[in-house]
Amino acid sequence: MDWKPDIPRWRQVYDVLEERIADGTYAPGTQLPGVLAIHAEFGIAQMTARRVLTELRDAGLAQMQPGIGTFVAELPKP
């Protein structure tokens, strides 16, 4: 990934995953990659990967199920 020096890495990875959710790569109910998979794909620290998932949850795009994983939230119908 070509990192932009003026944008935090967690935000850049968040934007990639948000786009994948928006374009249907990760459909509602689909399990998102876990911390280790995000760490491996993007080469970021595991704590940074955890923050990405937490931020997705806080934005209402994902739901965390402890011990199971993080899943794309069912978005409300317009």
Results as ranks from 00 to 15, higher is better:
Leu61Glu: 14
Thr48Phe: 00
Glu74Tyr: 12
Arg11Tyr: 12
Trp10Asn: 02
Lys77Thr: 12
Glu19Lys: 09
Ile38Pro: 00
Glu41Asp: 14
Val35Met: 05
Pro76Lys: 11
Val13Ala: 05
Met64Leu: 06
Gln46Thr: 07
Gly24Asn: 08
Gly60Arg: 10
Pro8Asn: 06
Trp10Pro: 00
Pro5Arg: 12
Ala49Met: 07
Pro78Thr: 03
Pro33Met: 10
Asp23Asn: 12
Asp6Thr: 14
Ile44Ser: 03
Pro66Ala: 09
Lys77Leu: 10
Lys4Met: 13
Gly67Asn: 05
His39Glu: 11
Glu74Val: 11
Gln31Ile: 11
Ile68Glu: 10
Val13Leu: 03
Val35Leu: 02
Met64Lys: 08
Glu19Val: 04
Gly69Arg: 06
Ile7Val: 15
Ala45Thr: 14
Pro76Trp: 07
Glu41Tyr: 09
Ala37Tyr: 02
Leu36Met: 07
Thr70Gly: 04
Leu32Asp: 01
Pro5Ser: 13
Gln31Ser: 07
Thr70Cys: 11
Gln31Cys: 10
Met47Arg: 13
Thr54Leu: 15
Leu53Tyr: 09
Ala40Tyr: 02
Leu36Asp: 11
Trp10Gln: 07
Gly67Asp: 07
Lys77Phe: 07
Ala59Asp: 15
Pro78His: 06
Thr54Gln: 15
Leu53Gln: 11
Glu74Lys: 13
Thr70Tyr: 02
Leu53Asp: 06
Gly69Met: 09
Gln46Ile: 02
Pro28His: 02
Val13Gln: 01
Leu75Arg: 14
Asp23Ile: 03
Leu32His: 01
Thr30Asn: 15
Ile7Asp: 04
Lys77His: 10
His39Ser: 11
Arg57Val: 15
Gln31Gly: 07
Thr30Phe: 05
Arg20Trp: 06
Pro76Asn: 10
Thr25Cys: 08
Leu36Pro: 00
Pro66Tyr: 06
Tyr14Ile: 04
Asp6Met: 13
Glu74Phe: 11
Leu17Gly: 04
Trp10His: 09
Gly69Ile: 15
Gln31His: 00
Asp58Asn: 15
Pro28Tyr: 01
Tyr14Cys: 07
Ala62Leu: 15
Arg11Gln: 13
Asp6Trp: 14
Thr25Gln: 12
Leu61Lys: 14
Met1Gln: 09
Arg50Met: 07
Pro28Phe: 00
Arg11Met: 10
Arg9Ser: 06
Arg57Gln: 15
Arg9Cys: 02
Met1Asp: 08
Val52Trp: 03
Ala59Leu: 03
Leu56Arg: 08
His39Gln: 11
Ala37Pro: 01
Ile44Val: 13
Gln63Met: 07
Gln46Phe: 00
Gly43Glu: 10
Gln65Phe: 13
Gly34Leu: 08
Gly29Val: 05
